[in-house]
Amino acid sequence: MSKKPTTGPALHKVIMVGSGGVGKSALTLQFMYDEFVEDYEPTKADSYRKKVVLDGEEVQIDILDTAGQEDYAAIRDNYFRSGEGFLCVFSITDDESFQATQEFREQILRVKNDESIPFLLVGNKCDLNDKRKVPLTECQGRAQQWGVPYVETSAKTRENVDKVFFDLMREIRSRKTEDSKSTSGRAKDKCKRRKLKCILI
């Protein structure tokens, strides 16, 4: 069919990362279609894109839902490269998934080579607070250490689901405007960004 026009509403590329079964897909589907999936089907790589209104401006959000399962770890690098912002999800009922966020963060920073890439630490399944394994302070501590926001969500109750996506989009947007504003003054950044654009186009 017809190719999408290259001009149009701004496109923000979001990538869902996190261990298997923490609810990345659940969050995505909740955000996209207001539905909650009870069954667990491991993801390989899913793609979603729709128009949303962000602070009165129509934009497109592109969500890449990646695989948490270790089996697919090798292909992650490729996916991460195209992301502009990351939702790093773990389940507050699963300490291992929390520990794994460290690795994901490192991998992202390595691939993106940018400390201030838009990034949110998301503690999911907060409706299961009685089964919590990761203390809130620990989560906040890590977020603070990384210099990123920390939000607790529930794909089941839809708590904070929109918030995390919109917050991330805002960060991406502000990064972009900042980037376009900055001129040849900072050669290093420019160089990095040009590279990034090459990949986008």
Binding site: K44, A45, D46, R49
Partner: peptide
Amino acid sequence: VTGLSPKEGPPGTRITIR
């Protein structure tokens, strides 16, 4: 169509279209 799971695969891949 706004969602694909998965977004790539060989022929015969079971795909959820949303």
